[in-house]
């Protein structure tokens, strides 16, 4: 699938819309697994991301003065996207996001309802039910899902703000396992599609963007790199390159060689 051809000046201003907001960066980064929040903040800066995912957890009462994320990554500069990581039922997800809304007023949220701690794939039946509960409460819900084309349509019909299929198990870094499904999900969707989970390095993000995804969400690929700040920068360039390649429209593949220098006029 090739995108409609745009002039370069249009492509340069190529932002994307999510739940009525416009973003320039097509990279969303997670804030888990970093050595510390300072490194996390530096990686966020280097990535150019405008949205960061966050988790809701109990305050550590034995050490109330421990560093807090909001003191390193400013919620006024970055859009916080609270997740429901660790939730296995719709009710747990709703409870978590109600707390998030009270904590920071965040209504744009990431829903993930897990099925199993070995592979961390979502329970799609429960995810769809949770989505409906959250939409009824006024949340704008980005949904972590399997790369199931039929469920992706059901999520959109139920009012999802974005569809976020896993390219591979969370934290695995295995890259996009089923390019056909991601492409089919992109083709049928009328809302943003993001690859969430499974990105391991910059080329994986490029592939996601070349398939027509609106953006990429990654955590471990950056946090788990030997040099997270440099990998954050690589991811920034990867989504730009992949997006441009998608908009440019790739050449058709050929079975045999086709010389780039003319054969005519050979000496």
């Amino acid at each position: 699938m090739n995108a409609p051809v745009q002039t370069l000046s249009t492509a340069d201003q190529d932002g994307w819309s999510l739940a009525g907001r416009t973003f320039r960066s097509r990279l969303i980064i997670g804030t888990g697994k970093y050595k510390d929040y300072a490194l996390n903040a530096a990686a966020a800066e280097a990535s150019g991301a405008e949205i960061v995912t966050v988790a809701m957890r109990r305050v550590n009462l034995s050490d109330p003065n421990q560093p807090m994320l909001v003191d390193f990554i400013d919620p006024k500069r970055f859009t916080y996207l609270p997740n429901t990581a660790g939730c296995f039922t719709g009710e747990e997800a709703v409870r978590t996001l109600r707390l998030a809304r009270e904590a920071g007023g965040w209504e744009l949220v990431k829903l993930e309802v897990l099925s199993n701690t070995a592979h961390l794939y979502p329970d799609m039946e429960e995810t769809l039910r949770a989505l409906k509960l959250l939409v009824a409460e006024g949340f704008q819900v980005m949904v972590y899902c399997t790369d199931d084309v039929v469920y992706a349509r059901k999520l959109e019909e139920a009012g999802a703000a974005a569809i976020m299929p896993a390219a591979a198990p969370i934290g695995s870094g295995l890259g996009i396992q089923n390019q056909v499904n991601i492409r089919l999900i992109v083709e049928q969707a009328h809302i943003p599609v993001l690859v969430d989970a499974g990105v391991g390095t910059a080329s994986d993000a490029v592939v996601a963007m070349e398939l027509g995804c609106d953006a990429v969400l990654t955590n471990t690929a950056i946090a788990g790199a030997k040099d997270p700040i440099r990998m954050a920068r690589a991811m920034k360039h990867a989504v730009l390159a992949g997006r441009d390649a998608y908009l440019a429209g790739r050449m058709s593949k050929k079975l045999y060689a086709d010389p780039s220098s003319p054969l005519a006029g050979l000496i």
Partner: peptide, 10 residues
């Protein structure tokens, strides 16, 4: 009583 806050997460 539950008291929660945002922390790093993916």
């Amino acid at each position: 009583i539950e008291i929660v806050h945002v922390i790093g997460g993916g």
